[in-house]
């Protein structure tokens, strides 16, 4: 046999080799990898593991801290609405209603009072609904971001 292999690309040999099945991996490979993964995870500190694997106290602490942060944000928003209208009232008193600044503050005060009045008339259930909708939107953004990452930047796309 000589001629078929004398061509530069050896098409027959190439085809023959391409059709060879991949050598079988030893049966010990998968258990070995799983043991190594388990060993590496065992030495990881708890805060580097997924939150689901955290100790119960740590998970409870995280939930509590999240609740405190959420309550602080809600109370800050509530207080902010009230202080805005009182700030406008005091500025109008300082500069006088006839001055330009005073007129500006008066306009601001009237508008902010109107806004505060309108906002106060909105039932708290609507605020909660809005809050939930915002949270859902935010989580949705994370979902979309994750999807975009997986489509274009995930390791599975690397070649």
């Amino acid at each position: 046999m000589s001629a078929p292999f004398d061509t530069p690309e050896d098409p027959l040999l190439h085809e023959y080799l391409r059709r060879l099945p991949a050598p079988k991996a030893p049966p010990s490979l998968a258990p070995r990898v799983l043991r190594e993964i388990a060993a590496r995870q065992a030495v990881l500190p708890w805060w580097r593991k997924p939150a689901a694997d955290w100790p119960l106290a740590a998970r409870a602490g995280l939930m509590g801290a999240s609740a405190v942060v959420a309550l602080l944000i809600l109370s800050w928003i509530e207080r902010g609405l009230g202080s805005w209208s009182s700030l406008s009232v005091s500025a109008g008193a300082v500069y006088g209603p006839e001055s330009v600044l005073g007129s500006g503050w008066n306009i601001t005060r009237v508008m902010s009072e109107a806004a505060a009045t309108i906002l106060r008339t909105i039932p708290s259930t609507i605020w909660w609904t809005l809050g939930v909708a915002m949270a859902a939107g935010y989580l949705g953004c994370i979902g979309v971001g994750g999807w975009v990452y997986r489509q274009w930047a995930a390791p599975g796309q690397e070649q």
Binding site: A25, P26, S28, L29, R32, V33, E36, I37, R40, Y149, R150, A154, P155, G156, Q157
Partner: peptide, 22 residues
């Protein structure tokens, strides 16, 4: 075997995205 193990350890680190990748 060593290289194959290293490959799968890397795959494990990225498994969330790899498992959904075509």
């Amino acid at each position: 075997q060593d290289i194959a193990q290293e490959v799968f350890l890397k795959a494990h680190a990225h498994f969330d995205s790899l498992s959904r990748s075509a």
